[in-house]
């Protein structure tokens, strides 16, 4: 069978999102390129604070009200720019075309609105359902995500729910309108593994039924291995490596990716101390001139201090931003 090359449903091109704070400019996203293929699941992993959520917020157009701004770059949905469009068009995109699950539920749940009303809001806005139908659909989706006492919970408020229940409410809000694209930012961090497995299954089922494409931001590399087709690795506001899930796990070509994989604690293997990548992310005021990972890299060479590496490409669209991948420096890690 011939493999059909899927088109890109979402393209993020050279995105720069900066925050202009009282303490200076925070270059949260500083030149990010990400392609999401139609019908595929793309995992985004990387250092805490590397710009994963801000990338997602930029796509969702949720920087308003913060000191953040897209200063450069394009975001194309199905080939059409979605950065420079009217407010009304942006509002329509949200919910119906792109659904988002936020990293911290309480940042986006309304504390004084009943759970049921929050989920129904999207349904009533984007479809011509009656209130009764919307209510039934809401209860059904709550049951699908294993929320107990669903018929009661719709009349409760966020503070009455456990962390994982709130997280699942966010999942329901994002899924209820059958979006084309789902951006899931750490959607299962507060869930135990059995419920997590159920939720992942539900998401993958929806992906099949409605052909949803998914951007999956997570720190859980076990989840990435399980559900993602492709993986993007971020460090310091940039993508440092990308490729299909097998390549990233089995043949990582960036020292950060390699260090990350080596830091995974393994079930059933006892160690005194866990491995980690030595050092911390650089202070933005003293950002290294060359590769941003150089100060922590055990393979560091002279050129790494001087010049930021471009992407070097291997087979299967596997890319790494590391000088070692250039032929004259050895060609691979």
């Amino acid at each position: 069978m011939k493999k059909v090359e899927n088109k890109n449903i979402l393209e993020i091109k050279d995105l720069h999102t900066y925050f202009y704070t009282d303490n200076g400019i925070v270059k949260a996203v500083d030149g990010v390129d990400i392609n999401l293929k139609e019908g595929s699941t793309l995992g985004i992993v990387g250092e805490s604070g590397s710009g994963k959520s801000v990338t997602a917020l930029s796509v969702m157009n949720l920087l308003e009200g913060t000191k953040g701004k897209i200063v450069k770059g394009e975001i194309l949905l199905d080939g059409k720019d979605i950065v420079n469009i009217s407010k009304e068009e942006k509002r329509k995109l949200k919910g119906s075309q792109i659904g988002m699950i936020f990293q911290e539920p309480m940042t986006s749940l309304n504390p004084v609105l009943k759970i049921g009303d929050q989920i129904m809001e999207g349904l009533l806005q984007h479809s011509d359902m009656s209130k009764q139908e919307a209510k039934e659909k809401t209860i059904k989706i709550l049951e699908q995500i294993s929320i107990p006492r669903a018929d009661k919970i719709i009349n409760e408020y966020p503070f009455q729910l456990s962390g994982g229940m709130r997280q699942r409410i966010m999942i329901a809000m994002a899924l209820v309108c059958n979006p084309k694209i789902l951006i899931a930012d750490e959607p299962t961090t507060a869930l135990d593994v059995t419920i997590q497995a159920q939720i992942l299954e539900l998401i993958l089922e929806l992906k099949k039924i409605i052909g949803m494409s998914i951007m999956f931001i997570t720190h859980d590399l076990g989840v990435v291995a399980e559900v993602c087709d492709e993986v993007v690795v971020m460090y310091c506001g940039r993508v440092v490596e990308s490729g299909d899930v097998f390549t990233i796990f089995e043949d990582p070509q960036h020292p950060y990716t390699k260090g990350l994989l080596e830091s995974i604690p393994k079930l059933g293997v006892e160690v005194e101390r866990l491995d980690s990548i030595p050092g911390n992310v650089p202070n933005p005021k003293f950002m290294p001139k060359g590769c941003k990972f150089e100060p922590r890299c055990k393979y560091s060479m002279d050129i790494c201090k001087e010049e930021e590496p471009p992407f070097f490409t291997f087979d299967n669209e596997h890319k790494s931003r590391c000088w070692l991948c250039k032929k004259e420096y050895g060609g691979e890690l």
Binding site: V45, Q103, S263, S276
Partner: peptide, 21 residues
């Protein structure tokens, strides 16, 4: 500690767990 490291990448998670130890 209620889910103290759930939002951390595995490398920082290791650092924090080592620190807690």
């Amino acid at each position: 500690a209620d889910e103290p490291v759930s939002a951390l990448d595995v490398s920082i998670q290791s650092q924090v767990l080592n620190l807690m130890k």
